[in-house]
Structures are given as structure tokens and as C-alpha cells.
Design a protein around this nucleic acid. Sequence first.
RNA 1: GCGCCCGUAGCUCAACCGGAUAGAGCAACUGCCUUCUAAGCAGUAGGUUUCAGGUUCGAGUCCUGACGGGCGUACCA
Length: 544
Amino acid sequence: MTTYLEQILADALKRLGVDAESANIQIEKPRIPEHGDVATNLALTLAKTLKKSPRAIADDLVNALEYDDTKIRSVEIAGPGFINFRFANNWIFDQLSDVLKQGHDFGRSDTNSGKKMQVEFVSANPTGPLTVGHGRNAVLGDSIARLLEWTGAQVDREYYFNNAGRQMRVLGESVRARYMEILDREASFPEDGYQGEYIRDIARKLADEYGDELADKPETDPVFKQAAEDAIFDDIKNTLERMNITMDQFFNEHNLYEDGSIDRVVSQLREKGLAYDRDGAVWFKTTEFGKDKDTVLIKSTGEPTYRLPDIAYHISKLDRGYDICIDIFGADHIATYPDVISAAKALGYDTSRIDVQVYQFVTIVKEGKPFKMSTRKANFVTLDELMDEVGSDVTRFFFLMRTPGTHLEFDIAEAKEAGEKNPVFYLQYAHARIHSILRKAEETYETDTEPNLGLLTHSSESALLKEVFQFPDAVAAAAKHREPHRLINYLNEVAAHFHKFYHDCRIMGEEPELALARIALLKAAGITLANGLEILGIEAPERM
RNA sequence: GCGCCCGUAGCUCAACCGGAUAGAGCAACUGCCUUCUAAGCAGUAGGUUUCAGGUUCGAGUCCUGACGGGCGUACCA
């Protein structure tokens, strides 16, 4: 529908001698039904460049407009210069049949077709279980990936991690200390060690498996770290699976050392005069890119800071041929990615292919107070614990329902109590209700006969119809902005229109002709909700 | 100090690239179940969009400044 309108408007512009390319045609559904089925503000946006009053431009546009009156019933100018369109009934009914035909694919579009994209998310190092702090990242990344798939892209989900370095060393030492404790042997717990109970679990498993065999191994023996990494990664993968998330690839930072790309980045930056030695360290000249200070790439100990592999990693992604690489970053990474971009650009890469999505932190509220989490100190609420309480649907929905760019307050008590008050049930309930009616209707009516859609004349029916048709646009808009919450807002509208329809229009007991037409509408609404929930990674139950 | 993000109803949040009368949920109040799921529907109340300027046909949205909150500003990740 949108495509057709864009087309006829572009044609009209051409007739008026206006460059349609630069005009940026926007079609939107007006808030108020009296303002038509869809509207465009085209005349208003053109007012500045054409130096004419919006009303006059709207007049010209409407005069130049040629449209198929089996599709468009009316076109009128209103307010400051909006052009409002109303659809012809037959066109609406054609669209409805089309929705039913598309079924499980309704909502897909080709705005990103042919594109190879990658979404990198979660990317938590295996030092502990995933916490609610990681939840927003995980769920955002996965739903954005799904949105992109629905707009035609081929998408890889990637988890980037590092199992070397100080963090992991301390993790190994923590496990060893607990292991020794279990054996009643002497060992000091590292000062900044990981205090969580899961460390004891890992140590206990080692003790069960090896007895005291490991006690005489040197402190630095990798067995402890390895056991921890394996166990924790198993746990993380299990958590992701519970959340409906499947990664295509786990990328170990270690690869970047092995294949020489770390060294390559340093030497190439040196060649460009952007890296130099000072005080035994290697520095990146970030002052060249407007920063106050230069940045250390390799510490005087010879160990790289995390920034260097970050740069090499992004270059690896670009080399792998992705058209777009999306990073899902928490606000704490906000300062690091400009360096990555600067470096990649300096090395000749098209950095417009890197798309960094920063989301704001989640404030955990526990017992009415903000709660500071720390993996190391084992102050955390894990995603598993949360899902034990409220399930994965509520968990996903909670993280998705707000704009990524604003702070999200997560009240544990509320999420637990919320239960049936939770807005996710509003959507699921609508879907379940639809299927409940369909089950009943199938017993009474010949639901596979061709319906006479012309009978759908009630205002609640047409409101629902028009809402359903917005679905592909809603998916595309959410994908474009990488903001799944837009889809939730849309689905809420669909559900609201459905519930209203349910209240106003009955099916069982109606004349078969009318009932069949309404069943068709019901199916279309059901398809929309089911497909939308799938993009959010949330169940669409047929019974509740 | 400097940089980035945020500030909208009592609370949690929407508002699509600057568009028509700023919307939901929760909490409060009033109606609606002998008929397809009341986890629902209809309605009442609640706002100087933190404040002060500016840009223009038009500002919650853009610019400047102030105030308030978050996150950065490491040879930590």
C-alpha cells in the first residue's frame, strides 16, 4: 500500500518538475481517524525548498496526482497542508486476502534483501553466569537480528569473547583456592577473586573427578581456568537457549593473535605514523582524531589493552565481507568505539559499514533500592533466576519494551509480582483469544470457503484491518532504526484494535456470510500477532 | 574539569527525518460477564513535555545556556 502511494506521489512530483528523489516522501497513519487512512506531509516538507505555501503546493500536488480509483477512494487537503488518503473498500479486501495468503511470511519485506549483515552481541567473557545486566544486550541483539532477517538480510549472530588475560587468570586462581579449601589444603583466595557460589560448584566437580590429584599442580596450571571456562560457557549457552537465542559463531579473541592480525594492525598504524613507542608502551595517536590524550595499545608489560584486539576484530569483520556490522554496546563502551572507528578508517576501511548501537544501562531495583551489581563480588541476579521466576517471555519483553537509548528501570519485585499484569500478556491473550474463537468457529462454519469481505463494514472491523496492514511497514521501521520496542508499540495497537473488535463484533451465532468474513479478519490479526511475537522471540500461545 | 546519554501524567514509559488535539500501562474512581477466554472493553481524573532563551509556517523533537540524574574520561575489561 505504502509503495503504491509513494509511486503515485513521486509521479505527481515529476509532473510538477520537482526532483522526487530528494523530496523524501513520508507516508504515515494519522493519529486521528478523521484525517484519513494514511496521510503525507509532503507539501509541508517541500514548502521551504519550493518557497511556496504548503497549501498551494498541496493543491498543485493533488491536481497533478493520478491514481487508480479502485484503490484510492478519496484524496483531500487538510490542516496546514497535509494530504489525506482514504482507501477504496475493494482494495482493502484484496489486501486482506493477500495477508491470508502470505500467512507466516506476512510482514516480510525486501528493504535489506541481498545484504549480508552481522550482529555482535552478549560478548560477555566467561567469568560468571549471565546476569540481568547482560539481558538487555542479549535480547536487543537477537531481536534486531530477527528484524533484519524479516527485511530480507542474511544475518549472522556472533559472540565475541576472550579467554586469556587477567580476568580469566584470576578466575582460575579463584577455582583453585576453592578446590584447595574443599581438600582442607592451604591456599589463599585471591584478593580480587570471584566470590560466587558457582566457583565452589566448579571446584567441587574437580574434586569429585580428580580427588586431590590436582593439589600438587603448580598454581598456574591451566586445568582450573579451563574447567571454569568450560563450565561457565555451558551455563551461558544454556541461558541463551532458554531465552530463545542461538549464536551462529563464538569468536575467540585468541584467533586474532594466531593469524597475525594484531601485529598487522600495529605495524600498519606505525606505517601511517599513528602508532609510536613511549615509556615502554605502544601508543595510538588518538589526539589526531580529536581526543585529549593518546591511547595505549600495548602496555609496557607487553600485554595489549583490550582496544587493540577490538580494532583487529572489527577489521576482521569487515574483511569477512559483511555489508553492515552491528555492535550492541552498553553505555560503558561508549568511549572506546570511536578509537576503533578511527583506526579502521585510517587503515582504509569504509567505516560506514560499522553500526554501533549503544543502549543505556539497566538500573536494577531490588527491595525498592537501586542495586549495584558486580560479577566479581557475586552481587548479581542471574538471568536464569529471573527466568525461573517470570519465564523467558516476560524477561525478553521487559528488556525490549523501552527505547534502548533511555535508562531502563528493572524492578525485580515488580517483574516477579507483575505476573499477569505484565503487558506481554496483553499481546499473548489477544492471540490466544483469536485461536479460541477459531477453534469454535471451525466446528460450526465452513471456514475454508471464500468469504465475502464486503460485509466488513463496522468501524471496529475497518480499524483493525487498517492496523494489520501497517505490519510490514512497522517491521521495516523497527529494523531501520534497530529499535524493537517500536514493534511492541505497534503490536499493542493491533491487540487493542482486536480486543475492541472482539467486544463489538461477534462471530458465533452470526449469519454464516458475516461470520466467515469476520473469521478472515480474525485470521489476519492472528497472523500479525504471531509473526510480530516471533520477531520479539516470544511465544504466541493458542491457549492461556 | 571535559565528553557522551537521559529529563514527558503520582509511578514506569510512548510519540516514526520537525507536523494536525502529547499517548499507553500501573495506581485511583465509574460502568460492562445467563452469549466466542473479564489476562478484556467503555468512561472519569491526572501535563506550562525540568527551567530560560533562540531557530520557523510549525518544537517534546533542532541550537545555546542553566539545573538534575547516569556513564565514560586507566599501561582494567
